[in-house]
Design a protein around this nucleic acid. Structure first.
Lengths: 155, 155
DNA sequence: TATGAAAAGGGGTTGCT
DNA sequence: AGCAACCCCTTTTCATA
């Protein structure tokens, strides 16, 4: 489905989405139109989900990142949809992953300060039905933090 | 430092970085030149870190996401820099966060399949010096997964 | 100093070979 | 797939308040 040219294009666009068609065509040894049509197809097929800007969180006042490990009560699986919809609507929640094994979730939460997290934790998160246990840990330095996934060469 | 106009611009650019100056100016009730200069400043100041494309991982063959919680041996803090540099060079590692409290790390790892994770785990990750314990859990569905942080209005 | 208008230039887009 | 022309939009400049 994806050939080596597609993958090269994806790699360069991840580094800088504003690269011009001419430059990109040069880098991948192809022509403007070919590259342009490839990108169109990658977008149509949903390989490229969207084009966005990455914002420095601390520069917009979001200084504290917390990972919250939420364990649900195993008995009532009915509460899971409720948890999910509520969590989706919390702007503080950046990511919410379902983990295998027990019924639990890993949340990446981004807030202004520790006080804001306390508020989020007690007045919003822990109010949701069906939670058994929450373990929070503040993330200090992000050694590596990227949306730039390394696209594998062979499929 | 950032006013309401900056924040509006950031919100629209997160949704679609390719929005034209004209459209963006309309949406935020301003003019092309003002919006253009604001974006320049946001980039100079590092508020906008970069412009990139988000790729659907499964469409490039990366189907398995694993969170690995790595606990280090408390005694020798000397091994931390080694861990960090090694981890940074693993393409499988998408994110590596230092967690507060104990000396430990949370890794978000993206691989082709479970076999690839096993290989990564045994032949690369667990080979690093100074590790006490690793807890891995496969992430199933991502309920929410976004780089679109919700920019807070007031500062 | 900040804004708007308008020129200039570059690059996305399309049709044709 | 590649070339070239077109046209739109970004970027710069300049005049104005």
């Amino acid at each position: 489905m994806l050939d080596e040219l597609d993958i090269q294009i994806l790699r360069f666009m991840q580094k800088d989405a504003r690269i011009s068609m001419a430059d990109l065509a040069d880098k991948v040894n192809s022509s403007r139109s070919v590259v342009w049509r490839r990108i169109q197809r990658l977008e149509e097929d949903g390989v490229i989900k969207k084009q966005t800007v990455l914002i420095d969180e601390t520069k917009v006042g979001l200084d504290v990142m917390v990972f919250a490990h939420v364990k649900m009560q195993a008995q009532n699986r009915d509460s899971l949809p409720g948890f999910i919809t509520k969590v989706q609507n919390f702007p503080e929640v950046m990511e919410c992953h379902t983990l295998m094994g027990d019924i639990d979730f890993l949340l990446k939460v981004l807030v202004k300060n520790v006080k804001a997290y306390e508020d989020f934790f007690w007045n919003r998160l822990s109010q949701i039905e069906g939670i058994r246990e929450i373990n929070s840990s503040i993330a200090l330095t992000a050694v590596k933090s990227t949306t730039e996934l390394t696209v594998p060469s062979s499929r």
